[in-house]
Design a binder for these strands. Structure first.
Lengths: 149, 149
DNA sequence: TATTGTTATACTCTATAACTATA
DNA sequence: TATAGTTATAGAGTATAACAATA
């Protein structure tokens, strides 16, 4: 039996992760901490609760990640203007600089990924992958509604 | 700027992992333990050293995974016929049954993934992904030879 | 009463280093 | 000497539960 699209996609997943790791390991970051920084960069200054929701992890988990990122100088904790329970997490200059570098790496990977593919091929892969993504979303929706029923 | 192939592939990676998790979480397995079982199923009865190499983790790590899988009845440890230092890990009947179910889930996902795609589209996505996979391999080879230099 | 974030505790995965038994 | 696997130790990520401060 030949290799399927699923197997190729799984192989691609592993290699993409390895490639992205090289971006953040050089900065002394881990995958989870980078993920938090990525969301923080996307959302702008956020409470830990907002980050917990964005990352889909517990509040306790965010406390640990922010502790580590604060200790290593990537983010700072500040007071929330109106809610005295909440903490506002903000990128430091270092954090913002690292995120800009990461965005550049991301864009570069994006380009290199489709090297040796014609524009027409890129378009057909793009549309095919959109269908696959939609299929996956449907599968997971069906599964979760099934198990919740 | 529109969504790129990289972003779509990253989204697909996450959903594929979520879908596959449902296969093994129901059996009380974790991702790492499932990965070990998957390799063991592929290789047949193996020493822990062979598993460590296949999974690209340390020997210590395999000790822990095999401890857990042995305790929960998925594998057994046996003597190596000629090397008295080595341990041979084998799937139990339960382990083998779970792996057959996992293979069925894998095949089913493989089919459902490309639902609503014509055969011709599947072929063009398949060939496009092969090129992308090759591009990634080249990128990582270049990076590792660069950092080893 | 509900929410935000922390402390307390525990489990899994992972790694390095030192060690035992064997090769 | 080298290898297979274990013990010892440590760090990261994750989770649940109890709690204090605040809403």
């Amino acid at each position: 039996m030949s290799t399927t699209i699923l197997d190729t996609l799984l192989a691609i997943s592993i290699l993409m992760q390895k490639d992205l790791e090289q971006s953040f390991e050089a900065s002394g970051l881990t995958a989870s901490r980078t993920h938090l920084l990525w969301e923080l960069n996307r959302l702008g200054p956020s409470t830990q609760r907002e980050l917990a929701d964005a990352l889909d992890v517990t509040a306790r988990n965010v406390t640990g990640l922010v502790d580590a990122l604060e200790a290593t100088g990537f983010v700072t904790r500040g007071k929330h203007p109106t809610d005295r329970r909440a903490t506002v997490v903000t990128l430091t200059d270092t954090g913002a600089r690292v995120m800009r570098a990461m965005e550049r790496d991301h864009d570069e990977l994006s380009r290199k990924l489709v090297a040796r593919l014609s524009d027409r091929n890129v378009a057909s892969v793009e549309s095919g992958l959109s269908v696959i993504l939609a299929n996956l979303n449907e599968l997971l929706d069906a599964a979760s509604s099934g198990s919740t029923r």
